[in-house]
Design a protein around this nucleic acid. Structure first.
Lengths: 336, 336
DNA sequence: CTGTTAGCGCGTTCAT
DNA sequence: ATGAACGCGCTAACAG
């Protein structure tokens, strides 16, 4: 076992080198207010010279704060979460925090393991995109008094903090846009039961009521997308479709490609997605979508969690809602 | 400060509850070989009943092993790294390891900070996708004796472990395929100076030598992709182009969309990318590409790092190369 | 098989 | 303004 992981240079050595006590070294490096500037400077110079790197485990063990957050999502390779992960990591870094990532695959057991591992790592807080059964994970975290903010979803009891998109409005904007494009036979391809899927469907349905003669159906497809092609083929054969609202941009792209493979003339079916991942990926998808700021989202998540960690907040759960807006691209424009 | 992050239940309490010493509890929970099965079972039952969660910081402080890895990449929101991150997280979990993520934005300063933070978190090892100046980060890690495996790139001295794709062969396959499609005026859109970009270009150039009359140019574009459109427009105006080999699928998609915006007839220019991100993202990009297994890549990275951590390996640096293959899709097929 | 002793590196508390 | 003593929770090394 050659690499013991232990730091080479410790405060003890800096103390020996400078003649001060370990305690004084500790204070100097943390910029405590009751030390002379000269002492601080000297100690820091020596620390730098020796290549001192703080041992966060020791500091965490003693202080009770680890400066680590957990990010628990279904699938970090999903571009939406990838973008979000980056924003979160950067916001966390601003607060001198580090981020551990877990994938749950939407599997309650893996989610549970992720939460336990996070607790075991003494994370100061958790950002959780819960699976359908995620309420259990939330209860576990709450039982351990660990601050937790939900990502984009909430549960019926609304007992946990959450940062959300205005899904209902997003769904409404999507439906309204498709109707304004002249579509009358609409299909929503939705994800399975969760709060954001429900609200998007609700807003979409509301838009439908505003135009007489508009017909719409809904199709629910298991993530991860495997079911889109067959479901869409079936729906398309049953009845004509001239507009699709998809739960996410990934669903929408799958739909576009499926229609292409089915030989449907481009421009026949207008499509709207959700998330606007393309604006950040340079993926160049010409897809109309419901945009929702991901930088603001990540920032809101981290800020809320930080407030919970520092404890300067009332104990009532907070659900913060971020606005959504329509972004028009080629997938709903007339093919000329 | 209401949440001290400290675990509620400690080994001490389990010891009190069971009548055993703290040490015996520790051994039982770690499944040490020198305890009676009965004792172990009893202790574990009590631990479970009390909801015990191990405190990994304390364990790490004492043992010198944190069971944490650092993953340092340019941009985790890049789908390639998103997919890789997921693979790595899952492989790490198999070894009871946890992954901390850092984004460097290809900025040497951020890269340096990431390495220092990782050291400070006592990670047992680092997986690093180095920036152009990343050799410095590697030296820092080596100076601290911290195991490190490079992701997809290496430096001239080859002094660090690395897992690589067979970039040279990938470039060759791409070039050969375009030539076989009948293209004779080729363009490679490459990323700035790094080992994988160079090797892809080398293989591509080799393919060009095999067909008399084939003409090819190379264009180098700064990541993150911003420059592709203008560079491509300029190149296209200068001279005719009937085939493009792009450094990555992201570059390729940007190129496709740019050509579309330029009003170039679809099918006029055949395009080959690199990475095959679409097979994993369900992104449904009909893009011919050089495929390179990402599951195998993640696994090789983690396995190699684990071997370094456990120390059962010779000290010579290892460069492991994974095969690449051609994946033909619509972007190089004849538009009928 | 089980208990005792010691200490990982640091922060807190109190004394000076 | 600085230092000494103590302990965070756990594991290593030994003793029995």
């Amino acid at each position: 076992m050659p690499n013991k992981g232990t730091q080479r240079v410790t405060m003890k050595e800096i103390a020996r080198e400078t003649g001060f006590s370990v305690n004084t070294v500790s204070k100097a490096l943390r910029d405590a207010p009751d030390l002379s500037g000269q002492t601080k400077r000297m100690i820091r110079d020596v620390a730098k010279r020796l290549g001192y790197v703080a041992n966060n485990m020791a500091s965490a063990l003693r202080s009770g704060y680890s400066s680590v957050l957990a990010l628990i999502v279904g699938d970090i390779s999903n571009p939406f979460f990838g973008i979000l992960c980056k924003e979160i990591e950067q916001q966390a870094a601003r607060h001198n925090y580090t981020v551990i990532v877990f994938n749950t695959e939407e599997d309650p057991e893996k989610e549970d393991r992720a939460v336990r591992t996070a607790l075991s790592q003494n994370v100061d807080g958790v950002l959780l995109a819960p699976s359908q059964n995620g309420a259990q994970a939330v209860r576990l975290l709450q039982a351990y008094g660990k601050p937790c903010v939900l990502i984009g979803r909430y549960f019926a009891d609304r007992a946990a903090d959450a940062v959300l998109y205005d899904d209902e409005n997003g769904g409404y904007l999507a439906g309204k846009h498709l109707l304004e494009c002249g579509c009358r036979n609409l299909l929503m391809i939705n994800a399975p039961h969760n709060s954001s899927a429900e609200n998007r469907a609700k807003g979409f349905a509301r838009a439908m009521t505003e135009v007489p003669g508009a017909k719409s159906r809904m199709l629910t497809v298991e993530s991860p997308l495997g079911g889109v092609p067959s479901a869409l083929r079936q729906a398309y054969e049953q009845e004509t479709i001239d507009g699709i609202f998809a739960y996410s941009d990934l669903f929408a792209m799958k739909a576009i490609w499926t229609l292409d493979e089915m030989g449907v003339e481009p421009g026949t079916v207008r499509i709207v997605g959700f998330d606007d991942i393309q604006s950040r990926l340079s993926l160049s998808m010409p897809l109309t979508t419901i945009g929702a700021g991901k930088a603001a989202f990540g920032q809101a998540l981290v800020e809320l969690l930080m407030k919970r960690i520092s404890g300067d907040m009332s104990d009532f759960p907070v659900q913060q809602v971020l606005p959504t807006k329509l972004v028009v691209r080629k997938s709903t424009r007339q093919e000329s």
